[in-house]
Design a protein around this nucleic acid. Structure first.
Lengths: 145, 145
DNA sequence: CTACTAATTAAGAGTAACTCTTATTTGTTG
DNA sequence: CAACAAATAAGAGTTACTCTTAATTAGTAG
């Protein structure tokens, strides 16, 4: 276990250098916390956990660092985007493409997506009300800039 | 066009009565605005549009009404949930089940989901970086209450 | 048609979750 | 180890709700 932690640390340093980021103790701590924690924590939850070990750290640093990590692909932002709620009165079966830069949502109509089955291990435990495929990336307009 | 609007209005009244909701002019206006607008507006955007016709309406009423509509299935909340950002350091290919009541996210591993193709009309215009299936419903714990 | 009552609304205060600004500190490079 | 650009802490500011309260109103019982 000790050596796998060391390997993880070296990997982290490699990726940071690759992107020209400095290796700070704060970043190290946040990286270790977030890769070590299962679940899908918010910035606030990660901040509270890290604060036990590093009482001096600020929320802003945790949040900013998480966003940096998401920029360089060390983690992803999922399901909650910290953005206002978006409403959709389109009752037709459809899916979405979402631009990671400007946040615009484009409807996707694709029959194969409508026909997706629900995995048995989900269906037996939880009640599934709806299913949707979410594609994420950079939209045409943002690419042209 | 005039008659389809009238039919829509009657349908709206029917659904409201079905759920024991009073027919108020505010609700009517919000319903007409949200079903008439394409895109995936936030509460703020709908509020601004309605305010042109009904200058006296409050943001709170618009927001509350939209949430009510989502409760009774007239519309859905998508992509932005008005919740804190959620981070995921799991780099394996996986998907999510999200509880509409408590907000918990459960990982879903399902090979068929990993193999979904991207529709051509999306791929030609936009850059797709990732794709995910999002199942939504009520989780086991919330059902048991 | 009137009175009643519970639902609904407007207004404004309060809160959560960022997000930005500024002064200070710290990795990194030469 | 000196210089400097990057990163941090602290705290103010902003956005998007969310709640409280008093006033109003839709539905209905008479």
């Amino acid at each position: 276990m000790k050596s796998s932690k060391k390997i993880k640390r070296e990997e982290f340093i490699r990726i940071c250098k690759l992107h020209g980021l400095k290796i700070t103790p704060q970043r190290m701590a946040i990286y270790e916390e977030v890769t070590g924690s299962s679940g899908h924590p918010s910035a606030e939850i990660i901040y509270r956990k890290i604060k036990r070990k590093y009482p001096g750290i600020s929320f802003d640093t945790v949040n900013r660092t998480l966003l940096t990590f998401s920029d360089i692909g060390l983690l992803q932002i999922v399901e909650g985007y910290g953005e206002p709620k978006r409403f959709d009165a389109n009752t037709q079966d459809h899916h979405h493409f979402r631009c990671l830069r400007c946040g615009s949502i484009i409807d996707v109509y694709h029959k194969r997506y409508d026909e997706l089955e629900i995995p048995a291990e989900i269906e037996t435990h939880h009640k599934v009300i709806r299913k949707r495929v979410v594609l994420e990336g950079i939209c045409k307009q943002c690419r042209e800039r």
